[in-house]
Amino acid sequence: MRYITPRKAAKGLGAAGPGASTAHHWGMTVSSSALLILTPAFILVIASAIGLPHDAVAGYFSRPYPAIVTALFLIVGMHHYINGTRILIDDYLDHAERKVAIILSHLFGWAVIAAVAYALVRMALSPVAAVVVVS
């Protein structure tokens, strides 16, 4: 039995426990700033591609601007997602559940980045005709 009051137990822990600093907040500020430009660019790129036939979609994303905007948005976006979700997890989960959730959010974010990287590289490297012939 600890005779410590709840207030005393919580004092000095801050919102996210010991070791928390402004570094996380600053990281979110930096990625938010980048996404301020990347988000409208990404929405326009995707909106122009939806509805095109398959070879036109593959050709479109092998061009530099759509490929780079898509890659940057999803890499910076998932980085921002992982760090933002960390705060959500810290607020609602404790102990082992918290650790598992943090690990899963990282795995998820990087899986999305890997999928996009694969798709863009494959569309960029394979000539449109070859994509059609292969499958």
Binding site: I46, H54, V57, A58, F61, T70, L74, G77, V112, A115, V116, Y118, A119, L120, R122, M123, S126, V131, V132, V134, S135
Partner: peptide
């Protein structure tokens, strides 16, 4: 929505049937 778009992109890179 992002997952839907990413799946669609991977399908476009994979081939016509996956894309369809």
């Amino acid at each position: 929505g992002l997952l839907l778009v990413v799946w669609w992109l991977v399908a476009a890179a994979t081939g016509p049937r996956a894309f369809a």
